[in-house]
Design a protein around this nucleic acid. Structure first.
Lengths: 206, 206, 206, 206
DNA sequence: TGTTAAGCGAGACGGTACGTCGGGTCTTAAG
DNA sequence: CTTAAGACCCGACGTACCGTCTCGCTTAACA
């Protein structure tokens, strides 16, 4: 359906994969700013035009590489152990591990770039940021339904910002690690923030 | 004291200011990636070499521009109304206003760049991120001393990450505004997170 | 034969010709010292890199332009009318015309430059100076074989220096024209210098 | 008369000499094209403005340096041994030695430059080329008066071109040395060219 | 003897050309 | 009709030198 005709030489899947791999690797090695279409093509052993034929910019190449990665990890986004905060913790740990492993540099660069590129911004949102955000939001909302958490909408959104905001802030500022321990601390803090408004906690809501 | 020799034509303060202004303005107009030393020099009405003479890279120019801004705003960093959380809210509002007004783009770009430049990373930390972070941390610590807040160290650091993490996350992702309302919500959430540890909240400290 | 691989976009002959033309024209218009690769590229309507891809310096561009000119004129270098001195005169007239028409400025500049560039010096010798020199030398040598001229080797070399030395000296110093009249005077002087050592001239050889 | 007022600090003769020396030395070391006012000033241990105050261009600096040299050598230009051709030989030997020793590079460069700078051309003529030319011309003319040489004016001018043309041609082309031997050969050739006009040589005068 | 004015070394200033690198487009021959 | 190769035009890079301009400091002649 994506392909119109069956004629002529078919697109090389080898080249596609080599380009995406090269893009991610170079971005991690030399940084987003130093990433170059010429460099990607050379590293991938591919003609420059082969990159331009399929992607308009280096941002698009990175986006596709990240999307491929994200798809492979998507399964872990919807755990359901019955314990909401345990599920939250699992999701955060998976996310932190992924982000540590290979994409921090690329995504921060893309985010910087998206400051002046609304189209990139929305694609980034749709592909990388949004799904994760939604997954966590859904998990929390399920907790509210189950009565595990209070039902304050603003607090729910803020809780998501809290988790991923802290993650990005630390990735960028490097003042503290982004690891399983952080997942634990965040989960614990969420427990307090989102505790059901029962008698014991009445004084907190004020 | 900063100058060793008194000989030769002295540095032009006019040129310095014009360059810093031009850098900030162009960064906001066209984005960090599109910022160019050539562009800065032309906008400032200055020879290109005059930029290179004093700053090695566009990052350095931006850093100095941000530092100048930060110094001018430094006064607002230590309010003391007697009410810890009111002070926190004041600090956050001031920070959000500043960041909205003119530096978001630049700082996000610098942060992206600092992913592969440890030296830039630490200067960014020392100049822009750290002071604000410390200011908030100190405010919270004072609250602990006064008994307004619980004394959990991890929770304190996490609270700072919460505030500024959310700020950066929203600045980058653009999924929600960074304004006075957010300051209010964050302050309210902090109230719950850092409520003095009474019996009801003992489990949080683990 | 000169090209190894047949792949990739072939070199543009249009660009090559435009560059050589522009170089000669600018050199004549503004002088050798003012000649600039940037200027050549712009005049030729060509990217700067296209010049640098094929020639390392402006000297190399000029050399190739002169060589092309020389090749087109090569035919006139070996006249044979049966009368040696008539042939000499023809050769000199052709050379003077060429040098007047368009290359004086360029060649003098290259010669100045070649004072500190042995490689340029030898290429200049091989391409521009040498062939002309050899052509005249051969003409004179043929005259010696035919008995038209005396066979003194030193005198023969000196005669060549006489003709072309005078040409360059006048081109540089501008104290006298380099024209057909000079060709006649030189030829006449050569007749005396190189007269066969017969009875009438014995006293000249000393 | 050249100086208007006697007030203020007098010009530093030390600086003037250092600049002229530096110019000549750098020109010989790196070539005319690579000669730079900045380089001259630094080599001379002098402020750049001190060069610009007294000379408008590097050409002017070189001209003055050459003029100073020429003045010091002027004495040798008018030998009179009674034997015209011996005097010629002496003049040529002195000239060749001078030119070899230190000025070839500079003068060839200036000549190249003078192709597009009539003012420089005439100053070069007046200072460097002309005097030598005139000296030789006068020597030959004296020979004519004495009856040592034929009185053909064209031949006389051509003889001068012959001597200095050969010198420059060899200096530029480097195909043969410019030394005392050449002075001898040229003198010998002149003897033939300018032999008193007897019957055998009548046809030369046309 | 103190004032004054020009020259001095130093070095920053606004410019321009350098030679390199990457951008994005194009034109080949090979598959 | 895609691929690798690579030339094309364009323009930013960071450097060097241009010629001009301020500095603080001599260094005399004048007052």
């Amino acid at each position: 359906m994506t392909e119109t005709a069956g004629r002529g030489r078919p697109r090389s899947e080898t080249a596609r994969a080599a380009i995406l791999d090269a893009a991610l690797e170079l971005c991690q090695r030399d940084g987003y700013q130093a990433l170059t279409i010429k460099g990607i093509a050379e590293k991938a052993g591919v003609g420059r035009q082969t990159v331009y034929r399929w992607w308009p910019t280096k941002e698009a190449v990175l986006m596709e590489a990240l999307r491929d990665l994200a798809l492979r990890e998507a399964a872990r986004l919807q755990p359901d152990s019955g314990d909401t905060l345990r599920d939250v913790r699992t999701l955060l740990e998976a996310t932190f591990a992924l982000v540590q492993r290979l994409t921090g540099e690329a995504i921060v660069g893309l985010m910087a770039e998206s400051q002046h590129d609304p189209e990139l911004s929305s694609r980034l949102q749709a592909t990388v940021i949004g799904p994760r955000r939604t997954a966590l939001r859904d998990l929390l909302a399920r907790g509210v339904e189950r009565g595990d958490l209070s039902d304050d909408d603003i607090a729910l959104d803020l809780a998501v910002d809290f988790c991923f905001g802290t993650m990005w802030y630390r990735l960028m500022g490097r003042h503290a690690p982004v690891d399983a321990a952080l997942a634990g601390q965040l989960t614990a803090a969420l427990r307090r923030m989102l505790a059901p408004a029962d008698d014991d906690a009445r004084h907190l809501t004020r």
